Amino acid sequence: MSEANSNSEFQTFIEQENQKAAIQAAISKLTETCWDKCVGKPGSKLDRAESECIANCAERFLDSSSFIMQRLMKKQ
């Protein structure tokens, strides 16, 4: 295996790991934001209103993130 090929594979690995980390950070932010917004007093399970709120919050968060990414890509 050539050194250039090895460096290319390493770069690809690093990029993939960075993408994984970014996805994990986004999921963590989504969870924190929606939980804080929708759950007042945690119980043994979510009630219907909390569950619907979390679902709506997650959808809005993902829609907003997608919109922002599309706008950034258009500017480049």
Rank of each mutant, 00 (worst) to 15 (best):
F61C: 03
R71Y: 07
A49H: 06
Q16Y: 04
C57W: 05
S2I: 01
F10M: 08
M1D: 01
Q19I: 02
M69E: 15
P42I: 01
F61K: 02
F67D: 14
G43H: 06
E15H: 14
K37T: 10
Q16G: 10
E52R: 00
A49D: 07
S28H: 07
L46Q: 04
K29G: 11
F67T: 14
N56M: 07
I23P: 14
I14E: 06
F13E: 04
F13Q: 00
Q24P: 01
L62A: 09
R71L: 01
A26P: 00
A55H: 11
E50N: 03
I54Y: 10
R71K: 10
S28D: 02
S65N: 11
A49R: 09
C38R: 03
A25V: 10
L46M: 05
S44I: 15
Q16P: 01
I14D: 02
N5A: 12
K29S: 15
S8D: 07
F13I: 02
Q19S: 08
T12M: 09
D36A: 09
S8T: 07
A26K: 10
S66K: 15
F10D: 06
M69H: 15
I23Q: 12
M73V: 04
E52I: 02
R71C: 03
E9K: 12
E17G: 01
C38P: 00
A58D: 09
Q11P: 01
S44G: 15
S64K: 13
Q24L: 05
C53T: 07
A26N: 13
K37Q: 11
C57R: 06
L62G: 07
E52M: 04
A26H: 09
R60G: 14
K37I: 05
K20Y: 15
D63N: 15
Q19M: 08
F13V: 03
K45Q: 13
E32V: 02
I27M: 10
D47N: 12
T31E: 14
M1C: 06
M73W: 11
N18P: 14
D63Q: 13
P42V: 04
I54K: 13
I23H: 14
K74P: 15
E3Y: 00
A21T: 05
D47A: 06
L30W: 08
E59Q: 14
Q11F: 13
F67H: 09
A21E: 04
G40Q: 12
Q16K: 07
D47L: 08
A22T: 05
Q19K: 10
S8P: 01
K74R: 15
D47Q: 07
E15S: 12
K37F: 09
D36N: 11
N5D: 12
A49W: 06
K29L: 10
S51K: 04
K41A: 10
I68H: 02
R71D: 03
S2P: 05
D63F: 13
